[in-house]
Structures are given as structure tokens and as C-alpha cells.
């Protein structure tokens, strides 16, 4: 029970800046809104044929998770079923929901697209990360009006403390109305390069940084 949990790596993407473990990487403030995500994908030479099929929310999650896991390859250290993915946001999948709604607005003549509809669930982004990295552990997607450091830290710590997972990919992936924000990090039971304990207080500091 006295087990401590640590934030071992962190990737954030917002306001035209990618940062890894608190160090700024690719940045281009001239790129408008969500186009920055594609620019980052190219900048870091990520290569995944399915990327272009994803909706913007999944694209954001994908780029953040690729950079995070390149930095801290959890799948090399843990069995696939011991890695949990727990993500939260505020707008759920409203961005692509609006797109699907638009395709059915003409009630007599509509052609909804299966490749749009499939993304109208926020947890699809967990599925995309899981598929890319063969991760099979616990899955949860939560909705909060804003990032909830108290809940996220206490819930993730409780699943690690009770051995429901050995490590976790977690954070906040939000994208709606051309605004985006990814704050994705790993939690493990030993310290990593980021020497930060996984507490609400430390989490708030990192998030507001």
C-alpha cells in the first residue's frame, strides 16, 4: 500500500508547441489550429499509413503517444496486458460528431460515412494507441469539464496499487472547434527520467506549466 507511483515521461502538444519531458521541441505558431498536428507528424517523420484515416482527435492522440512511447518504450518493459490506457477530455468526440451530423442533415438524401461514424466515440483513440502498440490492459475514457488532477492521480494510483496494471498511459486529449490540447504521460512504479511523484499537486504543476 505504501507503494509510490511516478510520472516517468510526458508529452504535451498545444498552442503550436510540442514538448517532451518539459523540453520544447517542434514549434510553429504560424500554423493554424489542427493543421499543426499534421505538421508535427511530418516533422518527427512518423510513419503510419492509418494516420490519414483518423479523425483529428485520434491524430492528436496518435502523435502524442508516438512521441511519448519513443521516449519511454513501455511495451519493451511490460507485458501487453499490464499496460493500462486511461484518457479524459471535455468535448468527447463532438468535433467528428458535428461532421457526422452534417452528413445526415438533409433528411431525404443522406450518405453517412462509416469512416466518420466509427470515430464518434472518444475511446476510439485508446483503440488506436492500443492497436499501434499492441497494448491489451485496462481501458477507460472519462469526461470532465476540465483536467481533473485529483481524480486522475488518485484513480491511476489505485489501479497500480491494486495490481490491476503495472504502468499506465494517461492524460488529457482534447480537440474541438479548431482548438487542441494533448497532455499525455506515463505512470510507473519506479522513477524515470522525469523524477516526479504521481500526486495531484505535481500533476497540476506539470499541467499548468
Amino acid at each position: 500500500m505504501e507503494q509510490k507511483n511516478y510520472i516517468t515521461s510526458l508529452c504535451s502538444i498545444k498552442n503550436g508547441i510540442v514538448s517532451l519531458d518539459g523540453v520544447s521541441g517542434f514549434s510553429d505558431k504560424s500554423i493554424d489550429g489542427v493543421d499543426f498536428i499534421k505538421a508535427a507528424y511530418k516533422e518527427y517523420q512518423l510513419s503510419y499509413p492509418k494516420f490519414y484515416k483518423m479523425d483529428n482527435l485520434c491524430k492528436l492522440a496518435f502523435v502524442a503517444s508516438e512521441l511519448l512511447l519513443k521516449n519511454n518504450p513501455l511495451t519493451k518493459k511490460y507485458a501487453s496486458q499490464d499496460i493500462a490506457i486511461v484518457i479524459a477530455n471535455s468535448a468527447s468526440s463532438l468535433e467528428i460528431d458535428t461532421e457526422h451530423q452534417r452528413t445526415i442533415s438533409d433528411k431525404n438524401n443522406y450518405f453517412p460515412s462509416p469512416s466518420v461514424f466509427v470515430y464518434t466515440l472518444p475511446n476510439i483513440l485508446i483503440g488506436e494507441i492500443a492497436i499501434r502498440n499492441s497494448i491489451k490492459g485496462e481501458n477507460s475514457f472519462f469526461i470532465f469539464d476540465k483536467f481533473d488532477a485529483e481524480f486522475m492521480s488518485s484513480y491511476i494510483n489505485s489501479i497500480l496499487d491494486s495490481s490491476k496494471a503495472k504502468c499506465c498511459i494517461t492524460g488529457w486529449i482534447e480537440l474541438y472547434e479548431n482548438k487542441y490540447e494533448a497532455f499525455l504521460y506515463t505512470v510507473e512504479q519506479q522513477e524515470g527520467t522525469l523524477k516526479t511523484e504521481h500526486t495531484a499537486q505535481e500533476l497540476k504543476k506539470l499541467y499548468n506549466h
Binding site: 471535455s90 468527447s92 485508446i126 475514457f141 472519462f142 469539464d145
Partner: peptide
Amino acid sequence: YLWETANVIAQHFINPNKPLIVSNA
């Protein structure tokens, strides 16, 4: 927004806590 829906429900019953929302297909 799902959190607003949940707030409306919690307020109706005068529940003092911020509701938790799970949206996982």
C-alpha cells in the same frame, strides 16, 4: 457536453459532488 448533462442531473438531486462520466463505447 456530457459533463453538463451530468451536472444537470446531479443538481436536480442536490448531489454535492462533481459527477464522474464514463464514455467508453
